[in-house]
Design a protein around this nucleic acid. Structure first.
Lengths: 163, 163
DNA sequence: TCGCCGCGTTTGCAATTGCAAGCAGCGAGA
DNA sequence: TCTCGCTGCTTGCAATTGCAAACGCGGCGA
């Protein structure tokens, strides 16, 4: 249902606000938005941006994702079921880390499949480049480098930093 | 502050787009936004609304949540990642492979968290006696051994995100 | 040498967001 | 009665979004 239901997001916010027994102005201040604007949002006259939505969610102490779903900004809670999807959906990982994990995983899959190549239905090729003939390049080992250190150093060194 | 890094969302989109090997115009059409607007978004000149972000996510075939987190629209205090759940649920992996993947993943998480730690006090405090802090023992490297084939090409594509 | 096509970018402009200021209604206390 | 203080709502207005049109650049075939 693509239908944004712009109105319903406002109703939902109002419901939540009244359930929390706080006034429009209180929520507005807690959320850091102006009172009139919140009023218009609740009545469906304005379509708040995600930033505002996020602040309102904070003011209401509810998950912003719930609000986003209500607003139609997130399709639905689609929990990633398989490993690769989960890795891809993990926002905590850097792009490189993601790639390393995926490639290692795929290599593992291949290794296992070679051992018992009877259960391979569930396997699904993810990339156009099927890494069938390439072992893990040293890039991956480089990514693992911090862990290859002898046990004299127990700390993890960052590979990339941004600032 | 959460330091939204509004610019980084554009870079991220551009990265994803180039990784998918599609042109700006193609993505724009797939996402249903205008080409110039997408151009401005990618260069950080415009801050796209969540609606646009959602459409771009669809065009890129990636999770919109990831984009929202990148845009700072969702606090990344998300539920503990489904990556581990997915790994544990994967019947094709051996127990040792599973352990390797999980440990690598957790180490990655730790690195990233160490970077984020300045901005969010929500990060889990880590003590030195925390058993999770151990580096990967050589056992894990042994598990990776078959892939450690020393290819003579020292070609590591190092992507510096920004300077 | 043209013309054509695709790439990303720049340039105005309509539409919209989001806010400050102000308005009307209601209950409490003097 | 008047006056606070609170509720939510209406009204302009600056700032921003998002787009259509047009631009410069480079490659390719006639």
């Amino acid at each position: 249902m693509a239908l944004p239901k712009v109105g319903s997001i406002g109703e939902y916010i109002r419901e939540q606000r009244q359930q929390a027994k706080i006034s429009l102005r209180q929520l507005a201040e807690a959320a850091g938005v102006s009172n009139p604007y919140l009023s218009q949002i609740e009545r469906g006259l304005r379509k708040p941006s995600a930033e505002i939505l996020n602040q309102i969610a904070k003011g209401l102490r509810i998950s912003s994702q719930v609000l986003y779903v209500q607003a139609g900004l997130i399709e639905d809670r689609e929990p990633p079921s398989d490993v690769i999807t989960a890795i891809r959906a993990d926002a905590h990982l850097s792009e490189r880390q993601r790639q390393v994990l995926i490639d290692i995983y795929e290599s593992f899959r291949k290794e296992t499949r070679a051992e018992d190549e009877q259960t391979s239905q569930n396997a699904r090729p993810r990339h156009a480049s099927d890494p069938d003939d390439e072992p893990l390049p040293e890039e991956y080992l480089a990514a693992l480098e911090p862990y290859a250190a002898p046990s004299s150093n127990g700390n993890v060194t960052q590979e990339t930093k941004e600032g």
